[in-house]
């Protein structure tokens, strides 16, 4: 029986006993540098392990959390599968990144590696749209560069998209274009601050805590407020991005999706 399936249900004492009795037999050493577990099933199994062991810090879907960085947009400290394996297994010295539960098998670590790679999948997919035409729409009719930056060009009032193809699949991109209000990350909510003199400052919510909040207004100016020194503030949890539905044709939307999906990290 895999140890992993026990961890959520058994009592700590029993767990300790399992660990003590099975530890010597569990191969902890990394014996290969190529990932032997890369099937779709391995990815799904890896996802399950990830959610149990890594999600608390890195977010349930690996998009980053309070403690751990976003893992869907390339990796900061590993450039190979073996490097990923080593970090998942051992952690990163001098950081809060600790290694996976020591009772985890090498197999399950490799599965996590496969899952992490799937979050950064750069595999080509057949898409109906044309990326070159999509780029024209992005830079022209779509007015996308008013708010979005690609390779340093464009606005700041929407997410940076230079590598968006690494972190969003075509379905997600389509849905973000058609129904942008459906799933708005808190970073892109709007806050409307009424100052003590009654004037209003409104902008994107860059960061907020119990006592303070910071925003970027329409002119891309940065503001910081102490909540105790403003009259009130209102949080608007919709996106400032308009839907492309009805603005672009279905073909143009496909082109735009193809272009956005083509924006990926260059592999060195």
């Amino acid at each position: 029986m895999p140890i992993r399936s026990l961890t959520a249900t058994v009592a700590p004492v029993f767990l300790a006993a399992v660990y003590l009795t099975t530890a010597p037999a569990v191969p902890h050493a990394q014996e290969t540098t190529e990932n032997p577990f890369t099937t779709n099933l391995d990815v799904r199994m890896g996802q399950r392990v990830f959610r149990q062991q890594c999600g608390r810090c890195h977010g349930r879907d690996g998009a980053g959390g309070e403690l751990g960085p976003d893992l869907t947009n390339g990796f900061q400290n590993a450039s190979t599968d073996a490097g990923l394996f080593s970090i998942v297994r051992e952690g990163l010295p001098n950081t809060q990144m600790i290694g996976i539960n020591r009772s985890a098998t090498d197999q399950s670590v490799w599965m996590v590696v496969s899952y992490l790679n799937s979050l950064n999948d750069t595999a080509d997919v057949d898409l109906p749209g044309d990326a070159a035409a999509g780029m024209q729409i992005f830079n022209g009719k779509g007015n996308c560069t008013n708010c979005h930056m690609v390779s340093g060009e464009g606005g700041r009032r929407g997410p940076e998209l230079t590598r968006v193809g690494n972190r969003r699949d075509p379905d997600e991109l389509l849905s973000a274009l058609m129904t942008p209000d459906e799933d708005v990350a808190p970073r892109w909510w709007t806050v409307r601050v009424t100052r003590e003199d009654g004037s209003i400052i409104e902008g994107l919510r860059m960061n907020e805590d119990t006592f303070t909040l910071r925003l970027m207004d329409e002119q891309e100016d940065l503001w910081s407020f102490s909540k105790g020194r403003i009259r009130s503030y209102e949080r608007i949890e919709t996106s400032i991005m308009p839907s492309v539905d009805g603005v672009l044709t279905a073909g143009e939307v496909d082109d735009l999706v193809a272009y956005l999906f083509s924006l990926r990290r260059e592999e060195s």
């Binding site: 960085p69 390339g74 900061q76 400290n77 590993a78 450039s79 490097g83 910071r214 990290r265």
Partner: peptide, 19 residues
């Protein structure tokens, strides 16, 4: 960060190789 409070505006993480 806001220089008066130390609270975050944004973060940039640079991806690094492991060797």
């Amino acid at each position: 960060v806001d220089a008066a409070t130390g609270r975050l505006y944004w973060r940039y993480n640079h991806p690094l190789p492991d060797d």
